[in-house]
Amino acid sequence: MLRLLNIELIKLKTSRVSRVLIFGYFFLLTCIALIAAIKFDIGPIKFHLAEQGIFNFPFIWHFNTFVAAWLKLFLAIIIVSMVANEYSNKTLKQNLIDGLSKKEFILSKFLTVILFSVVSVLFVFVVSLILGLIYSDYNEIGIIFSDMQYLVGYFVKLVGFFSFCLFLGILIKRSAFALGFLILWQTFEGISTGILYWKAEAIAPYVTRFFPLNSMANLIKEPGTRLGAVKSAANQLGEEFTKNYDVQFWDVLIVMGWTAIFIYGSYALLKKRDL
């Protein structure tokens, strides 16, 4: 296991482009803390975002994992290119000739995906903990460490998304086309969802829940409407949100299912192909 991870890390470490992108990604992840600095002070309107309750435990776990998840696109570029480049440099062929099996090759990529996800979770955890300790109104241990489900959801979401990128890299063999396909797929899911809700509204929520990108998005629902200020504003307008913001067990299962399909699919593709 460690050997396979090591092999992949050598490949990433020595490439300047991946070094810059990985560093950039974790730098941006840390920059979530900068949201705390958003402050408007225009005459009578005083607005300090950090004091609106977004950094309150346990809400901060929900808010930060939701925001951090957007940055995953950065790592998606790395994942796609670390697979597609093996094709374009023909180093995949050389790796196999040197005695790596196809299974080990996929495993080394998948372990890297897991590693990236674990480190991202740790980063978000540490950054959120520090921010929370500074700005949160509640500081009891029990409250700080409640709602850890969002970190689990974040982890499953990253692993699922990166596995999808890995699969696209193997399937399409060109980084640019694979990323293009990712955008195309997102559009396709969007259009299908629209059509389903228009033509067959009764089954639409059940079907769209199984779309890969949609199921990943479902893991951590938007936290905006949960914010105290927004809630009270809505209440005044007579609107009431009755949304369940929890990470749903079924969504976790669906995304894990997709992860398994993507990783096995990558292996099956590689096994079938002549290089």
Binding site: N6, T14, S15, V17, D98
Partner: peptide, 24 residues
């Protein structure tokens, strides 16, 4: 086989180190 295939951004020594890792 045919053309030599290595990681273009790695040095000669780094490439060989990677092969050592693969071949154990």
């Amino acid at each position: 086989i045919e053309r030599p295939n290595f990681y273009p951004y790695m040095t000669a020594e780094q490439n060989l180190k990677l092969v050592c890792k693969i071949k154990e």
